[in-house]
Amino acid sequence: MHIHNYEKIWLVLAMLLIVAFISTVAYGATAMGVDMISDDEETINPDALDEDQRFAEPRVEQVGENEYEAYVVALQFAFQPDPIEVPAGSTVTFYVTSRDVIHGFEVVGTNANVMVVPGEVSTFTVEFNEAGEYGVLCNEYCGDGHHVMEGSVVVVPEEEYDGGDQ
């Protein structure tokens, strides 16, 4: 096989680039602790969410000191609860599922961006350090009202937090 020397140089550099890309992602996953959505949760019957103790009443629940869990339902064409209210300085684990079709759950302008598949529960944990407000939108086409599907995450100052119930 006949390969020009310059091509050999490029072949080596291209492999180097590929290995560097994979290493960067591995660095993010280990050293920086960026976790992927995975298969941790059992499947769930989307027709029977009303009987599920987490999703019958979509809500935010305190589970430890500064630790909260948010049970969120996506449906055509809204998120429940809306707003999702959490205190500043908290670590929140989201459990998001769908009542009907595939949706997206994107906290606008952030890295919290996951798919929501009926029958599955997407779970991920993030830290909210400061008070503020985030938009939430559905970024997977879900029907003819897709563009009106939005919600919000409201991070209130710790001392003003009343448990997230509206």
Partner: peptide, 23 residues
């Protein structure tokens, strides 16, 4: 990559293959 119900390991394998597909 951000789908529920697929283990992170499978996603990593898919990424490795994808990156080599750049070659």
């Amino acid at each position: 990559y951000v789908d529920p119900g697929i283990a992170e390991g499978f996603k990593f394998i898919a990424m490795t293959n994808t990156m080599f597909l750049l070659l």
